[in-house]
């Protein structure tokens, strides 16, 4: 009985050792590829930094860019951003290729490889959403202050986070994470906010809002009567 049990254990260990031995070349190959691509990634980052710096990208972007670069770029430098994107793009490519030569997990690697475009698109959606939220935040803030709204800051932050949450929900849906749950959750959240605001304005703060508008209108009329700016 003991002998049979021992034999089964030994055979299992031998199979495991054999399996590990079969993976070893693939593992070594993967490590080599990853190391190679890591070196390549460093070279790409260095090359991009030098080329873009000599082109004066930071200065040009600062001058011609649509929004303040320092707000959403590492150290306010588009050169640094592109260098980092290049570095990680090469490194991730190396990892995926390495996974491809790793035979037992090749099916997983293929699935991951198929998933990469969706993941990249989700990242782009999120990045665009965040950038858009910052621009809208600034625009809403300036407009609200010029309208004399006391809660201008709150309003601009609300707009910012609404856009960020919307972008995050779109990215998650694109990745297939959460399924309908994300969509329904966002719908409930957004609908709830709108309903709450409508109720607050329609019932609770009706008089206050009305008085505030009247006061603003009176102030505006009074100012327009007294100073003609142009």
């Amino acid at each position: 009985m003991w002998q049979e049990t021992k034999q089964v254990f030994v055979q299992s260990i031998e199979r495991a050792a054999m399996a590990a031995a079969r993976q070893l070349p693939g593992l070594v190959a993967m490590l080599l590829i990853v190391l190679l691509f890591a070196a390549l990634a460093f070279m790409v980052r260095f090359a991009l930094s030098r080329i873009l710096s000599s082109f004066g990208l930071d200065r040009r972007f600062h001058r011609w860019g649509p929004v303040a670069a320092e707000e959403w770029m590492p150290r306010g430098s588009p050169t640094l951003l592109f260098a980092r994107v290049g570095f990680w793009a090469v490194l991730v490519t190396g990892l995926l290729l390495g996974l491809g030569v790793f035979e037992p997990t090749s099916a997983l690697a293929i699935r991951l490889l198929g998933y990469v475009p969706q993941a990249l698109l989700a990242i782009v959606i999120l990045a665009v959403g965040v950038a858009l939220s910052r621009v809208l935040e600034q625009n809403v803030l300036v407009s609200a202050v010029n309208m004399g709204l006391q809660s201008a800051r709150l309003l601009s932050l609300g707009v910012k986070w609404l856009v960020v949450v919307l972008a995050a929900a779109m990215a998650l849906e694109h990745l297939g994470i959460g399924g309908m749950l994300v969509t329904v959750s966002f719908g409930i959240l957004f609908g709830g906010i709108v309903l709450a605001l409508a109720l607050a304005l329609g019932l609770g703060s009706r008089d206050a809002v009305s008085k505030s508008w009247e006061k603003r209108q009176q102030q505006r009329e009074k100012a327009s009567e007294e100073v003609r700016h142009l």
């Binding site: 600034q138 202050v145 201008a152 009074k222 007294e226």
Partner: peptide, 26 residues
């Protein structure tokens, strides 16, 4: 010169300083 109540304009300036000074700091 006419006497004008400038309190609304002062309030607008103070509101602007409170909420826009981060924008102005650019």
């Amino acid at each position: 010169a006419p006497l004008i109540d400038s309190s609304a304009m002062v309030d607008a300036f103070r509101l602007g300083y409170r909420d826009l000074h981060r924008v102005w700091s650019l």
